[in-house]
Design a protein around this nucleic acid. Structure first.
Lengths: 147, 147
DNA sequence: AGTGAAAAACGATATAT
DNA sequence: ATATATCGTTTTTCACT
């Protein structure tokens, strides 16, 4: 699917998405127009979806994070999903199989804020909240499977 | 903590981390040297931790994701954490309060792969796996709290 | 902190292999 | 699919506010 050069490019950009074409080119041993073309194709093929930031939540005033499992009450699934999406402190949310319907990540400034957010959900869903004590793995690329 | 201009810069880069200084500068109404200096300081202050990629897991051959809650057996906490870290398909892992000790995200090519990975953990921990059916919220910046 | 102007580095494009 | 050469643009540096 991806050749070794594409993999190196993706890995390098995952480490620093602002790396210049020139530096990338040097890194993989090609010319910059070649790398530019490869990048264009990686985007076109939707391998690279976008270039984004790793922001420190603490620097924005978020003191901690929580993982919340959410099980909507009967008939409330749509309403709960809308409420989650409309609550900007939910920064990640997956709809999953099993008893819990959603698993979401909350950014929080205080326990009071957590309480306020959960209160608004309480009438529509059961929730189960775990406070994040440490981030053992903080977002990483999976391996490139041999194909 | 951050002034309005820094916020605009961070938001713009969260949308496209490869945006040029010139475009950023135009966007916030400053000159490029000013934006360059602000960026330098945002990095120095550890507000911006890095510039990274949004990669499409499917394009790498990962057919689905799973959220796994992991509860180490007595005395196995360290061993379990090491095992998780050493398994590259775990792309995210938080250590949390509550009965489950870890909540992790797995990238998977097949159900067989899931089975293999869970088998290796089974002797050291109880696991509870939810397959991701949809990503309701796919990583977003929290709001900038007024301070 | 911020600017504007010059110098240096970079990226886009055209052409060729 | 890649490289080299050219050219317009962007980034950096620096003197100044």
């Amino acid at each position: 699917m991806l050749d070794a050069i594409d993999e190196t490019i993706v890995q390098a950009l995952a480490g620093n998405a602002r790396m210049s074409l020139k530096e990338l080119a040097h890194h993989v041993g090609l010319s910059s127009p070649s790398v530019s073309e490869r990048l264009r194709r990686l985007e076109e093929r939707d391998v690279i979806r976008g270039y984004t930031l790793d922001v420190n939540p603490k620097a924005l005033g978020y003191q901690f994070q929580a993982i919340v499992r959410i099980r909507p009450l009967p008939g409330q699934l749509q309403a709960v999903q809308k409420l989650i999406e409309a609550t900007p402190e939910f920064c990640e949310c997956d709809k999953v199989t099993g008893e819990d319907c959603f698993v979401a990540r909350l950014f929080l400034q205080s326990l009071e804020q957590l309480d306020g957010i959960l209160d608004r959900i309480a009438s529509k869903a059961e929730t189960n909240t775990s406070i994040v004590k440490a981030q053992t793995i903080r977002r990483r690329l999976p391996p490139f499977p041999a194909e």
